[in-house]
Each structure stands twice: as C-alpha cells, then as structure tokens.
Design a protein around this nucleic acid. Structure first.
Lengths: 199, 199
DNA sequence: TAGAATAGAGAACAAGTGGAGAACAAATCA
DNA sequence: TGATTTGTTCTCCACTTGTTCTCTATTCTA
C-alpha cells in the first residue's frame, strides 16, 4: 500500500510533533496543527496511515492519535552477518537481542554482526555487533549499511555528492570507493555498537 | 491496555504528588487534589490504572492509593563514569540498562561510562559504555577496572608478574604503569562494550 | 481534454468519555 | 458496640470525539 504525497507529509509531521504532545492529540487538535478545518478530511488520511500500519488503529475508542511504537520490549532482531563485498548473510530464524534504549534510533532497528576490519579506525572491529536503524536516507558522514548494485552489502561512512556517492572505509589499507547514486541503496544507519569480551 | 487522556493526566499528577503524602491519600482527598466532586468518578479512573498495573490494587482494605513501584524489570545498573586517574564518579540513583546476554559475564555485572582516550587502540572510545563483571581476580591480558592506592580507578589491560602488576594503556601517547600488587585492587573485568551513535 | 485520483469543507450521527450523586458494604475508630 | 470513614457499584447526564456522508476544487494521467 503506497502513501500519497499528503499522507507522507502528514506522517512526517506526526513523527516530528507527536512526541511533544503529552496526551495523544485528537483529530481536532491535529487539524489545527495541520491547518485543516474539517475532521472528516483528516480522517481519510489517518485511516490510510492506519492501514499502512503506521498509526495505531483506534477501535471505536477516543484516545487520540498514536503512532505505532516499534515494540522494544522483547528486543530487536539479530539478522545475520555483514561483510564488505558480500550480501548480508541472513540467518534463518532471527533471534531477539535486548538492547539498551540508548543505542536505538526512533524507527525500527536490527542488529548485524560485522565481519572484517574495514572500519577498524572507527573502533568497529571484526565480530562487533552493530545496531542499525532501517531507513533509506542518511546524512553526510553517517555510517550506513549500503547495498551496492543490488548485490553486495557493506558498512561504510557515506558522502553524497551531486552525481556520485563515496563510501569511505576506515582502514589505512583500504581506499574510498565512488559510485553513481543509482548503484547505491542505503538500507540503514548505524545507531549503536555492541562488543562482547566473553569467549 | 491503553490509557485515556484523563487517566494519563491523573497518573502524572499522582506521580508528582503522591510522595508528599505521608499516609496514602484516600479517594476523597484525591478528589480534592484533582478538583473532582465525586468519588465514584475517580474510582473509575483509579480502577483503570490498577488494571494497567500502575496503581496497587486495594483488596477491600482502606489504605489509600499507592503507586506500584517501578518494577525492576531486568537490566544491570549503570553506576557512573570512570576516568583514568580519578575515583569512579558514581551517580546518585543508578538506572538500569537492558544489556544483551551476550555482553554479560556469569557473575553480577554493572555498566560504566568511559571518560578519556586511554584505551583507544583497543577500540574503546571516550563516551563508550563498558559492561564490567564484578570480581577481584583477573587473568593476564584481561582489561580490568583497577583501584590504585584506594584512590583512583582506571580501565587498563593487566599483566600480573611476581611482585609487580603492570597496567597497560592502549594509547601510543601513554606508557604502561607498574605497581606493587598491594597497591592494586581489581574491581571487575571487562565483558562488553556499548557505544551510541545517536546524539 | 476527459476521467480518475486526491484533497478539503461541512453536516450529521453514534459511541466513548468524564463527571455527579445516591446507595451500599466493609474496614476502622471511638 | 455503634458511629464514621472509605472503597465500591450503580444510574444518569453533558460533552467530546471518531466516523460517515455528500459536495466541491484541484491535480494527475491516459
């Protein structure tokens, strides 16, 4: 189910503003925020976000509009290993890892284990676990999981220039790689790191 | 179970005021505080908070309204900051952090935040969180929290020789320090590391 | 350019919510 | 014990809020 332009816009506004609301906002309050004059108009948009799974369905209740929380209670899934130059090695049955609040982004997150030393100068070592927030945009300088040519996945620092994307390794023996924007798909942004010293 | 607006509001007011009441407040007293005129109205709200697990159920007794203690789910305590050359900066009220199994030792563990760059070559950076298993022995090569002369705490790699203990920093600009065994008390061994990239 | 999709206004409706107050029973106190 | 306090249950009522309509304007698309 695709969202229309306005629906995306409203969802973005919700994300940015909803946390500031102490109680969940009602339709009327939201109309005010969005500059709408009719609840009915807003209702259509919210309904679309509900079926898209982004907003909690209110089953006849009057408890305001709430975004669905990526439930962090149980933990976030450990999906597999990522090694520069290969696809992500997914494991069959993702297990859940309990990760402290602190290492989570706002959106849905998952964990990968890093294979290789390409980010060693950033303090990311072979065998470390990284917490990734799944999203398709990144800011310059972010460390991202990038899918190159729909084939290989890699963890690198990203630099986005007009017409080209540069992926920087953090290892003196490796150099930065340059791609065309359409070759690179961002799959997530690094939010946290976990390392175990128990063998 | 989701709370309604009023229920949230009442719970917030309870949190803010309940501690000031020496005896737990009765329904009537609370009605005064909340500006309600009817016990029955308040009772509905309190009942909702009880089923939500936020207020202690009163089984026919007349003890007033008490909040349930924030049930210490699970997690290990975050105790404060450790900077080479100083005592551990303990915080007043240790909060609990949910840490994945993987980073825990067998014994009781706690979390410290690292201040300074003395272990930078081991991939432990300023601001990182370390999971420490509290114990007084360590094996050679372990990274430990060591208390020196009962004064300053530090995170270093340990080497125990007959008659002396060497603490190795992992920073080219720092050299190893040698102590007599009686000067050094091991307080715990590094088991895990956490780093947040969200600022 | 015609038709479809998208967006909004506004009216009307039904159900949820919040509160008042009465009545009652059990616990507590004098 | 009797009187009082306190928690509980009930009904009733006003208001809010989510929902569903219809109608119109604008934008996109074949």
């Amino acid at each position: 189910m695709k969202l229309t332009r306005r629906q995306q816009e409203i969802y973005r506004i919700l994300q940015q503003n909803l946390e500031h609301y102490q109680p969940a906002p009602t339709f009327d309050e939201l109309c005010g925020l969005l500059g709408l004059k009719s609840r009915g108009s807003l209702h259509k948009h919210i309904q679309a976000l509900v079926v898209a799974g982004l907003v909690e369905p209110m089953q006849g209740l009057k408890r305001g509009i709430r975004l669905v929380e990526p439930s962090t209670d149980e933990g976030i899934p450990y999906l597999g290993r990522i090694a520069a130059g290969r696809p992500i090695e997914a494991i069959n049955q993702p297990e859940l890892m309990q990760v402290p609040e602190l290492l989570l982004g706002k959106g849905p997150c998952y964990v990968l284990q890093v294979s290789g030393d390409s980010m060693i100068d950033e303090g990311i070592y072979d065998g470390d676990y990284v917490v990734i927030e799944g999203q398709e945009q990144a800011r310059d300088g972010d460390i991202v999981v990038a899918l190159i040519d729909n084939e290989e996945a890699t963890l690198k620092r990203i630099e986005q220039l007009p017409g080209e994307v540069i992926l920087h390794a953090a290892n003196p023996s490796m150099s930065a790689l340059t791609f065309k924007p359409e070759q690179v798909r961002i799959q997530g942004v690094l939010r946290g790191l976990l390392r175990s010293y128990t063998k």
